[in-house]
Simulated assay, not measured.
Amino acid sequence: MVQEHRADPAAGPSRAAPYPVRRDAEETKAAILRAARYLLARRAHADITLKAVAERAGVSPPLILKYFGNKDALFAHVMSFETDAAALLDAPLDRLGAHMVRHVLLSQAEQGADPLLRIVFAPLHREHGDVLRANFRAQVGDRLAARLPGPDAGLRAELAVGMLLGLGVMYGIVGGRALHTTAIDDVTERYAPAVQRYVTPEDGPGAPVAST
């Protein structure tokens, strides 16, 4: 077991950890990855230091080197959307819109890390931004499109993902007051049908059956 400090997940990256805790190796690596993802969605890659990641994660910089080797190796993990896409798309088609909306909101509210939002800042990251874009298209957009029945699956997938990104920006970057003071279930109920229309067009294959 490795002893370290845990930062308040709602605090900024420079806030000191308030108390010591113990995590196992997997929990520690997950905390480091969450911190790196948080920072990548808010700063240029070149401006992110291992010290900032460590402070955000509540660990020491040498611990990051122990688990990931160096900054480039750490961010190679962060620039992949593979794991995020698996969780985002883990629902039947007729409930996928609601699942995706809820997942985006809960990830930010409970973990401080949107599964998609770091793609918005790809232009900040120069050549690393090209990697982010390529990964996002293949691992999120193309993967969703492959699940969609009916015509124009690629376009519909991109429109659905665009709606999720807009929601993530309003919740996590703009910090919309109304969004933050409204229950996630209520926001999902309002927003998910618009996303679902791209997933399963009305009267199309796989469209949800209307309740009676």
Rank of each mutant, 00 (worst) to 15 (best):
A109L: 11
N135W: 08
P115F: 00
H99V: 09
G112V: 05
P123N: 09
R118N: 02
L132Y: 03
E110D: 15
V101P: 05
Q111D: 14
A134Y: 01
L106H: 04
R137C: 08
R102L: 07
V120I: 07
A122G: 08
Q111E: 14
L105H: 04
L105T: 06
E110N: 11
H128W: 15
G112F: 01
R126L: 13
V104L: 10
N135H: 15
A109E: 11
A98V: 06
L106E: 13
V140K: 08
V101H: 02
F136T: 11
H125A: 02
N135V: 13
H125Q: 11
H125W: 12
H125F: 05
S107I: 09
R126H: 14
F121Q: 11
H103K: 00
H125R: 13
P115T: 00
P123C: 02
V104P: 10
R133M: 14
L117I: 12
R133C: 07
R102W: 05
A98S: 15
F136D: 07
L124F: 14
E127K: 14
D114K: 02
H128I: 02
Q108F: 00
Q108C: 01
V101R: 04
S107E: 07
L105Y: 03
F121P: 02
A122T: 13
L117H: 07
M100P: 01
Q111V: 10
D114I: 02
R118T: 09
V131L: 11
L117N: 11
N135P: 10
R133V: 12
F121D: 09
Q108K: 00
H99A: 07
G129C: 06
H128Y: 15
A134V: 09
L124P: 10
R133W: 06
P123M: 05
A113R: 09
E110R: 13
I119V: 15
Q108R: 00
F136A: 08
H103Q: 02
H99F: 13
D130V: 10
A134I: 03
F136C: 09
G129H: 11
Q139W: 09
V131E: 08
P115G: 00
V104M: 14
A122I: 12
A113P: 00
H99M: 10
R102N: 08
Q139G: 04
R118K: 15
R133T: 12
L105M: 13
H128A: 05
L132R: 08
M100Y: 01
A134G: 04
L106R: 12
V101D: 01
L124T: 04
V140A: 02
H103W: 05
P115V: 06
H128F: 08
H125M: 04
L105Q: 08
S107C: 12
V101E: 05
H125V: 05
